[in-house]
Design a protein around this nucleic acid. Structure first.
Length: 555
RNA sequence: GCGCCCGUAGCUCAGUUGGAUAGAGCGUUGGCUUCCGGUGUCAAAAGUCGGGGGUUCGAAUCCUCUCGGGCGCGCCA
C-alpha cells in the first residue's frame, strides 16, 4: 500500500468515527467518505465534502454539520496540524510538514519497483491492439494505437494486473487471395513475363520486392507447380513477409506481443461454426434474402448484421465473433480492444454479439483512437514526401526517434484528435516536452555525480525532517502520488495521465532546482536533498519506463 | 437522416468520475539566474468552459435541445 493511500485511509477512518460520534447518522447510514486534494493550498492538504452529503440525512445546514464533525475529530491521531471549515461546508485538513517524511525512503527502498501496487489484484486482462492487415505498412494511426495499447499494458502491469498483449492477424478470407495474386503478378513481372495484377490487388512497393526476391530465389521454377499449390505458396510467402515486416517495425518501436492470433486458425479449428451454432441455439439468428443474420438490434445495434452472405461465405464480423468468444473462453477478467476511429461504428455490433453469446458486456471494452494529423512548421502534411503515400511509422521513427513518437502519442487522451508537430518533436529545446522531462532526469544525474566528487556518500543516512521548504513539500507530495496515479490510469484506461504526471514532476524538479541548492555548506541538509533528488530521479525513470521512453544520464 | 468523438486562454490541450477563485505548455509582455548544466526559473496579460434550458446546496463535468468540426453508417475488411 502506498504511503498516500495509508494517510488517506487513516483520515477517512478518523472522519467516519467523528461522524458517528456526533450522532449525525447511524453507522449504516454514513455515506462513503471521499477525500480530495484541493487545488488551492489555502484549502489544505485534504478536503472532504461529507458535511454536504449529510445535509439531507441530518436535515441540518452543511456548515453546522461540519462544525459538529470537527468538534469530534480526534486531532491527536495521525499527522493532522489543523482542521478548518470553509465555503459551503468543506472540512479542510492541514497536515504537519512531516506527514510525508517516509516517502523518500519508500522510493529509495523500492527503487525500480516504486510505483507498483496491487491495485489490480492480479486480475487477468487481455489487450488486443494494432492488428493491422498484413498487406501494407503501419501508418500514423496504427502507431498511435500501438503506443496507446503498449503503454496501457505497462500501466496495467505496474498497477498489479496480469496482462497479455495480442495481435489478431487477418490471414483469412478473400484479401489473402488478392495477396497471392498480387505476389504472383509481381513475380511474373520480375521474370519479365506477362502478368495480370488484379484490380483490387496490393500495389505497394513491398510486394514488388517480394516478387523480385522470389524470382531470384526460384527463377521460373514456381510456375511449374499446379495452380492451387502455387497460389498457396504465394499466399503464405507474402503473408510471412508482411508479418515479419510489421513485427520488425513494432519491435523497433518497443512494442512486443505475447501472442499473434491467426484468424485462419478459427476456420481450421471449427470455432466459427461453434460460435454460429451457439448464436443460432440462443435464437439470435435468422434467415433472410438468402443470408444468415444476427439479431444485433436486440442489444441496441442500429440494424441487424449479416453473418453468412448469399454466396455462403462469412462477413468479417463472423470470425471476429468466434475470436471474441475464444478470448472469453480463455478466462480473461477483461477483454480490451484498441481500434481506430474509423472502426468505431463496429463497437455496437461486436458488443451485441458478445451479449448474444451470453458474456457480460462489462468485461468488454473498446478504446477508440482518434486520428493523428501531422504538422511541420504549421503546415499540415497529408502524405509522405518520400513515398507519396500515408506516412509510415518507420519514417516517423527515423525522423524524430522512438522516444519522441511514443511520448507525443501518449500526451493526449485517446478520445481527442492529435496534432503531431514534427519540428517540435525533433527540437532539442524546452519547448519539446520529451526533452524537458529527460533533461530533469539528466540534471539530477549531474548533481549526483558532483556530490560524489565532493565526497558525499549517496547511500548515507539523512534526516527527512529537514525537507520542509515549499518546493520540497511539493516534490514529496508528487512522489507520494505516483502509485495512485498509475493505479487510476489503469482503472480509467487513461495512460496519458502518466505522461502528464511525469511532466509535472519534471517541472517541480526544475522549479526546486532554481529555488534551492542541493549541494550547500549545510552537510546535513545536503544529504537530505541528495536523497530527495535521487527519489525524484527514480520516479522519473520509472514513469518514463512505463511510457517506453528512455531516461538518459546525460544529454 | 442516424451513431460515435471533439468543442475550455491567440494556438495545442489537461481537468482526479458533481466541489471552493477552471489549470498547463507554446506564443505575447516584463523580471531572475557570478548557478549543482540558460535544454532552467518567476510573474503579468489572456476565459460568457460553443449556445439555450433543466437536475441541486454546488455543473466544464449529469439530462435535454441546439450550433460547429472530425469520423463512420456494405451481404468490404
Amino acid at each position: 500500500m502506498s504511503i498516500l493511500n495509508e494517510v488517506e485511509l487513516n483520515l477517512e477512518k478518523t472522519i467516519k468515527e467523528a461522524v458517528i460520534k456526533s450522532s449525525l447518522a447511524g453507522e449504516e447510514e454514513v455515506p462513503e467518505i471521499t477525500l480530495e486534494s484541493p487545488k488551492i493550498k489555502s484549502h489544505g492538504d485534504f478536503a472532504t465534502n461529507i458535511a454536504m452529503k449529510l445535509a439531507k440525512i441530518a436535515k441540518m445546514p452543511p456548515r453546522k454539520i461540519a462544525e459538529t464533525i470537527v468538534q469530534h475529530i480526534n486531532q491527536e491521531t495521525g499527522s493532522i496540524e489543523k482542521v478548518e471549515i470553509a465555503g459551503p461546508g468543506f472540512i479542510n485538513f492541514f497536515m504537519k510538514d512531516t506527514f510525508l517524511e517516509n516517502v523518500v525512503e519508500a522510493v529509495l527502498t523500492s527503487g525500480s519497483n516504486y510505483g507498483k501496487s496491487n491495485s489490480g489484484a492480479g486480475e487477468r486482462i487481455q489487450v488486443e491492439f494494432v492488428s493491422v492487415n498484413p498487406t501494407g505498412d503501419l501508418h500514423l494511426g496504427h502507431a498511435r494505437g500501438a503506443a496507446f495499447g503498449d503503454i496501457l499494458c505497462n500501466v496495467y502491469e505496474t498497477a498489479g494486473y496480469e496482462v497479455e498483449r495480442e495481435y489478431y492477424i487477418n490471414d483469412a478470407g478473400n484479401q489473402m487471395n488478392q495477396l497471392a495474386l498480387s505476389v504472383e503478378a509481381r513475380y511474373l513481372e520480375a521474370l519479365n513475363k506477362p502478368s495480370n495484377m488484379p484490380e483490387d490487388g496490393y500495389k505497394g512497393e513491398d510486394i514488388i520486392e517480394v516478387g523480385k526476391e522470389l524470382a531470384e530465389k526460384y527463377s521460373a521454377e514456381l510456375l511449374e507447380k499446379p495452380d492451387a499449390e502455387r497460389l498457396k505458396f504465394f499466399r503464405e510467402y507474402g503473408l510471412e513477409y508482411e508479418i515479419e515486416k510489421i513485427k520488425t517495425d513494432l519491435e523497433a518501436f518497443g512494442v512486443h506481443f505475447d501472442h499473434w492470433f491467426s484468424e485462419q486458425s478459427l476456420y481450421d479449428s471449427g470455432k466459427i461454426t461453434t460460435s454460429l451454432n451457439k448464436l443460432k441455439e440462443a435464437g439470435y439468428t435468422y434467415e433472410s434474402d438468402g443470408a444468415t443474420w444476427l439479431r444485433s438490434t436486440d442489444f441496441g445495434d442500429d440494424k441487424d448484421r449479416v453473418l453468412i452472405k448469399q454466396d455462403g461465405t462469412y462477413t468479417y464480423l463472423t470470425p471476429d465473433i468466434a475470436y471474441h468468444q475464444n478470448k472469453f473462453e480463455r478466462g480473461f477478467d477483461k477483454v480490451i480492444n484498441v481500434w481506430g476511429a474509423d472502426h468505431h461504428g463496429y463497437v455496437s455490433r461486436m458488443s451485441a454479439a458478445i451479449q448474444a453469446l451470453g458474456y457480460p458486456v462489462e468485461k468488454f471494452s473498446v478504446n477508440i483512437i482518434q486520428m493523428v494529423n501531422l504538422f511541420e512548421e504549421g503546415e499540415r502534411i497529408r502524405m509522405s514526401k518520400r513515398t507519396g503515400k500515408a506516412v509510415a511509422l518507420r519514417e516517423l521513427m527515423d525522423e524524430v526517434g522512438v522516444d519522441a513518437v511514443r511520448y507525443f502519442f501518449s500526451m493526449r487522451s485517446n478520445d481527442s484528435q492529435l496534432d503531431f508537430d514534427l519540428a517540435l518533436a525533433r527540437s532539442e529545446s524546452n519547448e519539446n516536452p520529451v526533452f524537458y522531462v529527460q533533461y530533469a532526469h539528466a540534471r539530477i544525474a549531474t548533481i549526483l555525480a558532483n556530490a560524489k566528487a565532493a565526497g558525499y556518500e549517496l547511500e548515507a543516512s539523512y534526516d527527512p525532517k529537514l525537507l520542509v521548504s515549499e518546493k520540497e513539500l511539493d516534490l514529496l507530495k508528487q512522489l507520494a502520488a505516483f502509485p495512485v496515479v498509475v493505479a487510476d490510469a489503469a482503472k480509467l484506461e487513461t495512460p496519458h495521465r502518466v505522461t502528464q504526471y511525469v511532466y509535472d514532476l519534471a517541472a517541480m524538479l526544475h522549479s526546486f532546482y532554481n529555488a534551492e541548492k542541493v549541494l550547500s555548506d549545510d552537510k546535513a541538509l545536503t544529504q537530505s536533498r541528495l536523497a530527495l533528488v535521487q527519489a525524484v530521479k527514480i520516479t522519473l525513470a520509472n514513469g518514463l519506463k512505463i511510457l517506453g521512453v528512455s531516461a538518459p544520464e546525460q544529454m
